[in-house]
């Protein structure tokens, strides 16, 4: 199969004239391809963005842990010092710091509301631990903490992080699955449009047969046309999809999780692959539909 046939791209003017233009199937193919490519841009953005999120969470968050110390008023400072000593002698820890009460109050404000009488609440003390490249063994640290400071609990984030990473990974696969489904649906619709065009041009096909046209020639006349249209539609659809994504609020304007849905850096180039892929899908779908139909017409 000569997929890279130059005449496929440039078009054989004579060959394209032997089949009369078919308005309806042409518009249908153009629209289908544009709509599917528009959706494909979002599916692509979704899977790239969730892939990025999963990576960030599993990398950056893995390096930060928290130690929570709950102890009666009198023992809190002593236990804090004990924990600090343990941390200072634990390998794999880059730095740690006690989160001041004021900062802690700030962290809690969005949840509990402002003007909270924090002094009346028995708040635990929090120590943020940043591990270095090697990392520390959480189980060993837990044992030592239990011996030195019974009120200290190590929360290494894996417990709540894992489901988030899994969800992000799941979303990424959903995005890729959507891309495959979009491609499949497009192949299906273009096959139907091509079959309609072939059926509508049955008389033409018979005349072409009578003057000695081979199946590949007849199929080629249809295939080129559908490939062009699908490529053009995909160009429009992918272009509109890119514009729509560019118009989404950016990371900076609203600091929410959803704004991560977009392209970053070289990611902006990936939608450029949509039109060639759409054209290839149309080429294969039309060609197989045409050759199958011509085989039956013998």
């Amino acid at each position: 199969m000569r997929v890279l046939d130059l005449s496929l791209l440039l078009g054989d003017a004579q060959a394209d004239r032997v089949v009369p233009p078919t308005g309806f199937t042409a518009q249908l193919t153009l629209f289908t391809s544009a709509a599917m490519s528009f959706l494909a841009v979002f599916a692509l953005a979704l899977s790239l963005a969730t892939g990025r999120v999963a990576e960030t969470w599993s990398e950056a968050l893995a390096r930060a842990s928290t130690i929570r110390i709950s102890a009666p008023e009198g023992q809190l400072d002593a236990q804090t010092r004990a924990v600090e000593q343990v941390l200072a002698t634990t390998p794999g820890i880059a730095s740690f710091r006690v989160i001041p009460d004021a900062e802690q109050a700030q962290l809690l404000e969005p949840w509990l509301g402002p003007g909270l009488p924090l002094d009346d609440l028995p708040l635990p003390r929090l120590i943020e631990v940043i591990e270095d490249a090697r990392g520390f063994a959480p189980d060993g640290l837990r044992l030592r903490l239990a011996a030195e400071a019974p009120g200290a609990v190590l929360d290494d984030h894996t417990r709540w992080r894992r489901p988030l990473v899994e969800a992000a990974e799941g979303l990424r696969w959903l995005g890729l699955l959507s891309l495959a489904l979009i491609g499949g649906a497009m192949a299906g619709m273009i096959t139907l449009a091509a079959q309609a065009a072939l059926a509508a041009n049955r008389q033409i096909i018979e005349v072409l047969r009578l003057v000695g046209a081979r199946d590949v020639y007849i199929a080629g006349a249809f295939t080129r046309r559908f490939t062009h249209r699908a490529g053009l539609g995909a160009l429009l659809g992918a272009g509109l999809g890119l514009v729509a994504i560019a118009l989404l609020p950016g990371n900076d304007s609203a600091g929410s999780f959803l704004t991560g849905l977009g392209f970053q850096g070289v990611g902006w180039i990936t939608p450029a692959f949509i039109p060639p892929v759409a054209a290839a899908v149309a080429f294969l779908a039309t060609r197989s539909a045409a050759l199958r139909m011509l085989g039956r017409l013998s």
């Binding site: 072409l208 003057v211 020639y217």
Partner: peptide, 21 residues
């Protein structure tokens, strides 16, 4: 005598050559 009605008479006559490129 069937022809392709959207092509001119001359193009129809040349069709056997056209379809074999």
């Amino acid at each position: 005598c069937r022809f392709l009605d959207h092509l001119s008479v001359a193009e129809n006559i040349a069709l056997p050559l056209t379809v074999s490129s």
